[in-house]
Amino acid sequence: MKEPNDVILKTATKAAVVIILAFSIHLFLSGHHNPGGGFIGGLAFVAAVVLLYLVHGIEKVQKNIPVDFKKVAGIGVLISVFTGVGGMISGNPFLNQAFWMVDLPLFGKTEMATAVLFDVGVALAVIGASLTIIISISDDR
């Protein structure tokens, strides 16, 4: 990718990336009860990283976020599969999800669901796979 030198874009990105990242996390967390979830949250995260790539160039960003996204994708899939197996240990079918209501000190009555763990896997897989594809294609020249 060409190295753009656009002050306005760079400045705007600084604010925008933070907002998008925060929004993506919000999307992910609220997914259980409101619009959102692992897939959308993950993709929004990807969008933020892609914005960074577009503005700062891939090499610079990779130096600052030294994460191997192939591994992220693999870990995501593994997490999803293992939460599925988790249900089997307690005698339920594969991928059966459970949820409990727990009283947490600060948050009050909060719901804990294994589905969220499964969703973490989905989000990581989406982030990992999409960024792997994007980086690979843009690397090829």
Binding site: H33, G37, V122
Partner: peptide, 11 residues
């Protein structure tokens, strides 16, 4: 235990 039907279907 999910109020969002789409998400409940997905996960």
């Amino acid at each position: 235990g999910a109020k969002n039907i789409v998400n409940a279907i997905l996960v």
